[in-house]
């Protein structure tokens, strides 16, 4: 799956999690910059991403995720 395809799949997930259809999802978007970001929405994003891509992330892996780009890298590593 290409990075663009992953981003395309992530966009509706992030719109749903952060309740914001206007959110522009790019690889450089930092999660902390999203107004609705907090502990609940962060973990909801992780869970929804795992379900959508059929993978599971450990906390060790999630420590490195601070941006959409980091999440993208993690997903690509899981998908192989």
């Amino acid at each position: 799956m290409t990075p663009e395809e992953i981003l395309q799949r992530l966009q509706p997930i992030m719109h749903q999690v952060f309740q914001d259809d206007r959110l522009i999802v790019t690889a450089t978007l930092s999660l902390e910059e999203i107004p609705a970001w907090d502990s609940i929405s962060h973990m909801a994003l992780i869970t929804a991403t795992e379900q959508a891509f059929g993978c599971a992330f450990s906390l060790d892996e999630l420590v490195k995720v601070g941006s959409v780009g980091d999440l993208l890298t993690l997903i690509r590593a899981k998908l192989g």
Partner: peptide
């Protein structure tokens, strides 16, 4: 517990 504890661990 799961959500909040995980978040605390992720962000140290």
């Amino acid at each position: 517990f799961g959500v909040q504890a995980s978040f605390q661990q992720i962000y140290d």
